[in-house]
């Protein structure tokens, strides 16, 4: 495709991202840096402040489907699941807007989402993070990294690797228009296990990667090797997802009273 086609693809994908993904990096950064007129986020840094946040309706939704728990680590695990499920829903709508996606076999659409959503989530999480914590509840809360580290094992191991990734990923200083194409390229990945029509997926991804490369050259002219650095991040994300899946398996085994949302059960089953 020519340059103008790639530019219009980049614009289309960016618009789909803005339309379907609720918390943009732009919005998150304005909250994290205090450059917004809305109230600053409520800071959760210990059990008391977590309880206050739950009772003060920082979160819009209650935790549905999960058994009630008094254990704080389990509670945080359920909150992570709620956010993940909602983001999977948003990412599915985003994927459907990527040109060519709905023309794939339904089987392949399922496979791409099964393997792609966690990588996509973990590359969007850094938008909500700084080295000290992360925004939650649509920007109304901020949970400190120290608090998450203080949970008992294995729940203290859930978020720390994501913070380590985020600090490095945020150094690339991507904005939402870059992230939109990067997330699309992650979802349209031709080497997911069990794809029926690999070539069809690769053709779509190839277009997206060309659009991303062109977009980065225009948008970050002084950032050398940004495109190959992002390709490397795709491999890092795969590793992060593998480790996350192993941790979820461990929690399932050792924490028998802890339940996993049915959508996440589907995604993790026979994944890696």
């Amino acid at each position: 495709p020519g340059g103008s086609d790639l530019k219009s693809l980049a614009k289309h994908v960016y618009n789909a991202y803005l339309k379907n993904l609720n918390m943009t990096k732009k919005k998150a950064r304005s909250i994290l840096t205090g450059r917004t007129s809305t109230n600053p986020p409520f800071v959760v840094h210990d059990m008391d402040t977590l309880w206050q946040a739950e009772n003060g309706l920082v979160w819009n939704q209650l935790i549905h489907g999960a058994p009630p728990t008094k254990e704080i680590g389990v509670h945080v695990f359920y909150r992570c699941q709620c956010t993940t499920v909602e983001t999977v829903r948003e990412l599915t709508e985003f994927a459907k807007s990527i040109p060519g996606f709905v023309g794939l076999y339904l089987n392949d659409q399922v496979t791409l989402l099964k393997y792609g959503v966690h990588e996509a989530i973990f590359c969007m999480l850094p938008s909500l993070m700084n080295k000290d914590g992360l925004l939650v509840a649509n920007g109304k809360g901020f949970v400190t990294r120290e608090f998450l580290r203080s949970l008992r094992r294995p729940f203290n191991e859930i978020m720390e690797p994501k913070f380590e990734f985020a600090v490095k990923f945020n150094a690339l200083e991507l904005d939402d228009s870059d992230l939109a194409l990067f997330v699309a390229a992650i979802i349209l990945c031709g080497d997911r296990p069990g794809l029926m029509n690999v070539r069809q997926v690769e053709e779509i991804q190839d277009n997206i990667l060309q659009a991303l490369n062109l977009h980065l050259q225009a948008h970050h002219p002084d950032s050398l090797y940004l495109f190959p650095k992002l390709l490397q991040k795709m491999a890092d994300l795969r590793q992060l997802v593998t480790e996350n899946a192993q941790l979820v398996q461990k929690i399932k085994k050792t924490e028998s009273e802890t339940s996993l949302h049915p959508l996440l059960q589907e995604i993790y089953k026979d994944m890696y």
């Binding site: 459907k96 399922v110 989402l113 589907e266």
Partner: peptide
């Protein structure tokens, strides 16, 4: 794959999914 991923299927075919 369809049997094992009923919710993902439903999400792909409808934008709303009541059991989420």
């Amino acid at each position: 794959l369809k049997e094992k991923h009923k919710i993902l299927h439903r999400l792909l075919q409808n934008s709303s999914c009541s059991d989420l």
